[in-house]
Design a protein around this nucleic acid. Sequence first.
DNA 1: CTCTGTGCAAAGCGTTTGCAAACGA
DNA 2: TCGTTTGCAAACGCTTTGCACAGAG
Lengths: 133, 133
Amino acid sequence: MKDYTYILREHHLKATPQRLVMMDIIDTKGHITIDKLYEMVKVKFNTISLATIYKNINSMVDNKLLFEVKVPNQKSVYEIAKDPHSHLLCKSCSEVVDIDLDMSSLEKTISANHNFIVDQRDLVFSGTCQHCK
Amino acid sequence: MKDYTYILREHHLKATPQRLVMMDIIDTKGHITIDKLYEMVKVKFNTISLATIYKNINSMVDNKLLFEVKVPNQKSVYEIAKDPHSHLLCKSCSEVVDIDLDMSSLEKTISANHNFIVDQRDLVFSGTCQHCK
DNA sequence: CTCTGTGCAAAGCGTTTGCAAACGA
DNA sequence: TCGTTTGCAAACGCTTTGCACAGAG
């Protein structure tokens, strides 16, 4: 198990038991909605309130420890922030997976054709995953 | 001015004056939030209710006449559905613009490496536009 | 004429806030 | 100890719903 205490402190957040449980679940699941997270945290920490989940999600996102992935036609999922990457969303099973794609040539085009400096990418490719087809 | 009556009927929606005004504004602006749309429609049609805006946005999206663009850190904007394209979001002025990018090679990679068939792309590149830098 | 769309008010639902007590550093 | 976090309940804001009437086809 990773040192979530250290990771939280690195992002200027106190390591409370509630936050440690949240981190563990998000890291294990990879991507999770607020609802599902609340449900899963409650199993390990049954006094937690939904307000605490929201407050912590917000401060973790603000401190760039978590990243929100806005998904078409469904609720946002949250992931632990990592290097830039893209997402695949299966419309059948709703799974979200990370993929690495080389964007350098596209971003060169954007810079050249639109004189626009890209510093964030929110890229979701939807379709059908290998298990569902 | 385009024939919005025809476009609406093509998508199995009746051409009401409220919808015609909505279409004209969305088409002219390119991308617009619900709030801004309501505000602008009211100028031309002051009896319209927000509930009507919502009902129409929803039926237009359901019938694939409109497309919702989920934008990081701000409210969704709506655009008239067109061929697949990407979006640039300026973090400074919040403008959203359409761009064409050739995704064929990336999608070939996705298909080859992940055995995943892409049929929808939600791609937003954020940064600073030429006017804001 | 029929069925869909509109406007209003109320309800619904996800998210945020204020506050006192508990807790981490 | 001091500032942050928690849990609760209330408030909030956006979105949807039910219904009677109006309007498009």
